[in-house]
């Protein structure tokens, strides 16, 4: 028997944020006496790195070092409301709320610094290294800790801010389906290369080469990890996973990792990706959501590649070896049909 190779492509969009909107998130920021900024949230980090990227966004907007920013989440007594981490929404929604809160806190910080520097707040800027300076004369500066101490003990001012972001909920016209479902759309294209063993029906994904356009990246390493992890999950969905192997029959439902088939490191294909950045109009620093779509795009690319390899169009996933062998019986690419009745 033979090993057949094929290539397939898929190009997809993915909406950022809860469908139709109406999903608020809040952030509160305050400075401690010595200039540590605490961002209070009730948002959840699923492992994608929310606690990290939100600290980056907060530090950037405040104009203070990353190390000066703490994330305090998730506690409903101390953190203001967040709709939750899903729908590729968290960086977009929470990030926007943090920017709003940080701008308010930054304004107070600059006003206090202006008093200390005997300058106008409009003439001040932050250097991102922990100092506030007079634009044009950087030697006239004051460090953040001194500003925070002065705010607390000299001026009685709270360096703090409130942030809230919501995309107003869109109604759906029940007759036409007219609606505003998304905040922004990210895009991806995946090229998959596969090899099909016509004797066993097994598919090896040789490579997944992709381009992702995700607005601006707050943390490129974390975006990279989403792309690779998502590519692997997409491959897993395309070829292996199901809770009902003979769907719609509910029989043979797996109850353990030994029965629920997920590929392991041996099945990891060569993954290459390029990330394009076109800022979204409404994302914090131009971000779009990336978390979910990375698992979507590889599925049709892989299935199209298999169809290309065997010459039979496949229309369902997971494409298990059994389904491949059955499809091969119809393949014009094989002179001898695969043995049946095995």
């Amino acid at each position: 028997m033979a090993k057949l190779r094929g290539t397939g492509i898929a190009a997809v969009n993915y909406p950022t944020g809860m469908n139709l909107g109406g999903d608020p998130s809040q952030a509160l920021i305050h400075a401690t006496t010595t200039g540590t900024f605490v961002i209070s949230l009730s948002s959840t980090d699923l492992g994608q790195g929310l606690k990290t990227v939100i600290a980056q966004i907060g530090a950037e907007t405040l104009g203070v070092p990353f190390e000066n920013v703490l994330i305090d989440t998730a506690d409903t007594d101390t953190g203001p409301h967040c709709m939750g981490t899903f729908a590729s929404r968290a960086t977009h929604r929470v990030g926007n709320a943090v920017i709003m809160a940080a701008k308010e806190a930054r304004k107070v910080m600059l006003e206090v610094a202006a008093e200390e520097l005997e300058a106008s707040p409009d003439d001040l800027d932050t250097d991102g290294q922990g100092n506030i300076y007079v634009k044009g004369s950087p030697e006239r500066k004051i460090d953040i800790t001194s500003v925070a101490l002065a705010a607390h003990f000299k001026y009685g001012r709270s360096i703090s801010g409130r942030g809230m972001y919501i995309k107003p909920k869109s109604p759906v016209d029940p007759e036409t389906g007219k609606m505003d479902p998304d905040s922004t759309e990210a895009h991806a294209c995946v090229v998959a290369e596969v090899e099909v063993d016509t004797e066993t029906g097994e598919v090896t994904v040789l490579s997944l080469k992709s381009a992702y356009e995700v607005g601006c990246q707050v943390n490129p390493a974390l975006v990279r990890e989403q792309i690779i992890g998502g590519a692997f999950m997409g491959m897993s969905h395309a070829l292996y996973e199901t809770t009902a192997p003979y769907y719609p029959s509910p029989d043979h439902a797996p109850g353990s990792f030994s029965e629920y088939v997920i590929p392991g490191p041996h099945e990891l294909p060569h993954i290459e990706s390029v990330v394009l950045e076109y800022p979204s109009v409404n994302g914090p620093y131009g971000v779009k959501g990336v978390g979910e779509m990375t698992a979507n795009a590889p599925i049709p690319a892989i299935i199209n590649a298999i169809s290309n390899a065997i010459g039979v169009r496949l229309t369902e996933y997971p494409v298990t070896p059994e389904k491949i062998l059955r499809a091969l019986e119809r393949s014009p690419k094989l002179k001898q049909p695969a043995q049946t009745g095995a």
């Binding site: 390493a221 990279r224 993954i271 290459e272 620093y285």
Partner: peptide
Amino acid sequence: SEVTSAVARDVKKEFHVVGKSVPR
């Protein structure tokens, strides 16, 4: 595996920490 960034936008990056791969 490789993931590279191609900055296709016109926006000049003048950020201190946004856009940087800081540790988790």
